[in-house]
């Protein structure tokens, strides 16, 4: 089966969420967007270095999906994980400080943008090896099962990871052992600059996942209501002990792969088509049409996000550098 990536699916019907919940999820998407716009700017200014992979355009996935998880659950993410970290509950200030490389960052400046970690919210990284998080998530699922814990593991990865052996080995193990792992594929149609059609003999990723004998479902990743509903259903199924599940979120990154990308591999028109389906403005428009959001309310949550970003940047700027004497600290547990 081939997928027509250019034909947007119909919206997922009226928003059944109460106003508070809808506003919270909208605000989270705006917070990610504003934080990342600022980080791109700070990258240009030289305050953030290394690789910086922006999630702009894909916000509905992290926000819709993570709001379907419980606090006790585990999250494993990729190097494009600023949004996941923020929605999971990390302070924006500690994320920003990490990108600055400061000791008050969530990984004490050892990880940077690609390696955000947080023990408190059970965020097991920011993994910058494509597919590297899948075996870890499988093991986290195994531990939860062996310990009898009511805890599932949500593992985020991109379409590029599907070509890695780690994907196939992990889905096989998780299904074989009926582990509580939810594989969340953020299919943004490109593994860096290689289009999925140029990387996969079978572009229907659900077919691959289903071959490991687990439920697999594709959902419009630009539609936060659809994302959340699909995720809730998958979470319920995994939590019930029926083994792993797979959800493919079809999405698109609006920005370059990283800050070093001339985007020679895709047409501007294609990017514009997807931008027209941007998750923030489409969801806002739906809420407004249904009388659940006013322009003033939107401006107010946007202003709050901007203020949070400003405070996060101030915190990061004021933060101290890890003393060089601590360079070797934490290679091993003391």
């Amino acid at each position: 089966m081939t997928i027509d990536h250019h034909a947007p699916p119909p919206p997922s019907g009226p928003v059944s969420w109460d106003k508070d919940f809808a506003h919270r999820l909208l605000a989270d998407m705006v917070r990610i967007r504003r934080m990342e716009e600022k980080s791109a700017e700070l990258y240009g200014a030289g305050q953030i270095r290394g690789f910086l992979h922006l999630y702009i355009g894909e916000e509905a996935v992290a926000v819709g999906a993570l709001h379907a998880l419980a606090a006790a659950d585990n999250v494993v993410a990729t190097y494009r994980e600023h949004g996941h970290a923020l929605v999971r509950g990390l302070l924006m200030a500690s994320i920003m400080a990490e990108m600055f490389g400061k000791s008050c960052g969530c990984a004490r400046g050892r990880g940077g943008s690609m390696h955000l970690f947080d023990a408190k919210t059970r965020l097991f990284g920011g993994n910058a090896i494509v597919g590297g998080g899948l075996p870890l998530a499988t093991g986290l699922g195994l531990a939860a099962k062996m310990r009898g814990e009511d805890r599932i593991t949500a593992c985020f990865f991109g379409d590029g990871a599907v070509a890695e052996g780690a994907f196939h080995e992990s889905l096989n193990l998780a299904a074989l052992w009926k582990l509580p792992v939810l594989f969340c594929c953020e299919n943004n149609l490109f593994g860096m600059g290689t289009a999925i059609e140029r990387a996969e003999s079978q572009t229907d990723l659900c077919v691959k996942a289903a071959s490991y004998d687990m439920p697999a479902r594709r959902v419009d990743g630009m539609d936060i209501v659809a994302v959340h509903a699909a995720m809730q259903q998958a979470v319920q199924c995994v939590r019930a002990g029926q083994g792993p599940a797979f959800v493919e979120f079809q999405t698109y990154r609006f920005r370059a792969h990283s800050m070093f990308d001339a985007e020679l591999y895709r047409q501007k028109a294609e990017v514009e088509e997807w931008k027209a389906r941007g998750p923030i403005h489409t969801f806002s428009a739906r809420l407004k049409a249904e009388g659940k959001l006013t322009e003033e309310e939107f401006l107010s949550l946007d202003a709050a996000a901007c203020a949070e970003v400003a405070a996060a940047v101030a915190y990061a700027e004021a933060g101290l550098w890890e003393p060089v004497e601590d360079l070797l600290k934490d290679v091993h547990t003391p």
Binding site: L140, G165, E169
Partner: peptide, 28 residues
Amino acid sequence: PERIRDTPLSELGFVGAGIGAALGGMRP
């Protein structure tokens, strides 16, 4: 069989799963 676990031939997968299980509170 829960504690003496035969794995498929997938070294990357089961060694990685050992790491995840260790992170999750086990001593594999």
